[in-house]
Amino acid sequence: MELVFRDDPYAESCEAEVVDASPDGIRLTRTVFYPMGGGQPGDTGRLIWDGGSVEIGDARKGDSHDEVLHIPAEGVDLPAPGTRVTARIDWERRHRLMRMHTTMHLLCSLLEGDVTGGQVGESKSRLDFNVAGDQIDKEVLTQRLNELVRQDRAVRSRWVDDAELDTNPGLVRTMSVKPPRGSGKVRLIEIDGVDLQPCGGTHVRSTGEIGPVRIGKVENKGRQNRRINIHLSE
């Protein structure tokens, strides 16, 4: 399956052919739908074909690494295998998730400590850090985040293989999150001069696209585990 979102997260739709379809999921030859993973929710939207359409309420990973299951609404007619469809995501929702996901990378660059969990949301997200509480000042973090947004730093993705990671240990040391090993290659997201970490999610082209953000409630989830809530202001 061709994952269009991987190379072009701004693609709102694509043409595809149905491989098979059931209430458990519709498989296509290619897709713009990002499947739930890495804390980012799966895309929603519609599949449209000549004479019909179906609402897609979620996208999930299939049996293989590059397979996406498009989860249809209940009790609807499904397209037959071989049907040519237009796969169209809810772009407004996706773009908010892209803005928020990129903001979470910025937050990682501002705190020392391991990331222990996280969840991307449309208007509110959270990141959990193994970090001392005295490192977290909500007002200061909000100011620093918004300064990085205003700087309009470029956001890029690139791939490295395991061999490059092995021969360049300095690359790994610069990452907020350590890359997974054994898959042969790792996708990195780099925010120019600010952050570098492995990530398969979708992101905006530059930090200026995020808009104003603020740090919300900071929750104590253990002796050193702190949950930081992040909000988009618009």
Rank of each mutant, 00 (worst) to 15 (best):
Gly133Thr: 07
Arg46Tyr: 13
Asp43Cys: 01
Gly193Pro: 12
Asp90Ser: 05
Arg226Gly: 04
Asn225Cys: 05
Leu188Gly: 08
Thr103Arg: 03
Gly25Cys: 12
Arg153Val: 09
Gln197Cys: 13
Gly216Ile: 02
Leu171Glu: 04
Asn168Val: 03
Pro198Trp: 13
Gly118Val: 05
Gly118Cys: 06
Glu209Met: 12
Thr44Tyr: 06
Lys178Glu: 12
Glu12Cys: 06
Ala87Tyr: 08
Val68His: 01
Gln135Gly: 03
Ser13Tyr: 06
Asp20Pro: 00
Arg84His: 15
Gln224Ile: 14
Val177Ala: 00
Gln119Leu: 05
His101Gln: 03
Glu2Asn: 13
Leu145His: 05
Glu55Cys: 07
Asp50Ser: 13
Leu171Arg: 07
Lys185Leu: 07
Met100Glu: 11
Thr167Ser: 15
Glu92Asn: 15
Thr142Asn: 12
Met104Glu: 14
Trp49Pro: 01
Asp66Cys: 06
Glu2Gly: 04
Asp77Tyr: 00
Thr29Phe: 07
Lys124Cys: 05
Arg150Phe: 10
Leu165Ala: 04
Leu232Cys: 08
Asp66Val: 11
Asp63Arg: 14
Met36Ile: 14
Arg99Ile: 07
Glu74Thr: 14
Gly118Met: 02
Pro41Lys: 02
Asp63Pro: 07
Ile215Gln: 00
Asp8Cys: 01
Met104Val: 10
Glu147Gly: 11
Gly184Asn: 05
His101Phe: 01
Gly208Phe: 01
Ser125Tyr: 08
Met175Gln: 11
His95Gln: 15
Ile136Met: 06
Met36Phe: 14
Glu92Ser: 12
Glu164His: 08
Gly170Tyr: 03
Leu165Lys: 02
Pro179Tyr: 05
Val131Ala: 13
Met98Lys: 14
Arg94Ala: 08
Arg99Asp: 05
Ala73Tyr: 06
Asp8Ser: 06
His95Ile: 14
Thr102Trp: 02
Met104Ala: 12
Asp8Arg: 03
Thr86Gly: 09
Asp20Thr: 10
Val4Lys: 08
Pro212Thr: 14
Pro169Gly: 08
Tyr34Ile: 04
Glu190Asp: 15
Ala132Asn: 10
Asp114Cys: 01
Asp195Met: 03
Leu106Ala: 13
Gly82Asp: 08
Asp20Trp: 06
Ser206Val: 08
Gly39Val: 02
Arg153Trp: 03
Gln143Cys: 00
Arg223Phe: 01
Leu145Thr: 09
Glu164Thr: 14
Gln119Phe: 03
